[in-house]
Design a protein around this nucleic acid. Structure first.
Lengths: 126, 126
DNA sequence: TTTCGTTATATTTTTATTAGAATAACTATA
DNA sequence: TATAGTTATTCTAATAAAAATATAACGAAA
């Protein structure tokens, strides 16, 4: 019966993903690409995020397969071991994705405030 | 090099979820509530969806805890074993959720068409 | 030609999620 | 009072997802 004091308030979370037959692009790949752009390295990027290299590699591979174009142009070997950079298409995709997401988010927040503000006022389970 | 013939086209998928500290409401609970409304039974509803009763029960319980109000008013026993119906708050939540979702979806589709139509024209991996 | 740090890839191990089983409680009716 | 079919709850087993590991290849520079 005691009212919970410092409970996190209810808030919306919107996720934008792209599918073909399978999921192929979403927040995970997006942030990974951003980190790769930052580091010029899949390995450093995945480490940054706390994602295993194999998973990073897998989701990029899957994305490329389903999108039909390459996201990374990578080279291997050399003194620094190699590296990876985003293709133009990846940049374009990423930019569009983030922008689209942002607009949706804004729209979502206003809709949420409009339609669900009654919830926090409502009482009392058990 | 062979072009994939009948590949599913790329399309967006938008997911609206509600969180407090943890995820507490989303598409899963929504459809479950709709099925419960249809069947007046958690068991029948979960069977319909192909979800285990225990999971159905768990996600509803978690939702109620986090939302701060009850979603189901259920009775047990009797000739028919009992049943469950949606509370008014659940109805309200569900309606608002679906409406909000629909509006976002519409917005999303137009944004997608606007920003990502270039993708299908683009060529050719490996 | 050896070294280094990366990409690339497959395989194995670990973890998290989900389903399933088991059990108790409930109550209108036969 | 025995039955039936549900809710409610916990525990275990199966499955899926992710991480970790292992290897090979690469190529610039020492």
């Amino acid at each position: 019966m005691a009212e919970n004091k410092d409970k996190a308030k209810l808030h919306p979370k919107l996720t934008l993903q792209f599918f073909t037959d399978e999921k192929c692009f979403g927040p995970g790949v997006a942030i990974l690409l951003e980190k790769i752009k930052e580091n010029n390295s899949i390995r450093k990027a995945s480490f940054d995020i706390g994602m295993s290299y194999s998973k990073a590699w897998t989701i990029i591979k899957r994305a490329e397969k389903n999108l039909g174009f390459k996201l990374l142009s990578s080279k291997t070997g050399g003194v620094d071991g190699g590296g990876a950079t985003l293709t133009e298409n990846a940049e374009r995709l990423l930019n569009s994705y983030r922008q689209c997401e942002q607009e949706l988010l804004k729209y979502c927040d206003s809709k949420f405030a409009e339609n669900f503000s009654w919830i926090d006022n409502i009482s009392v389970l058990e």
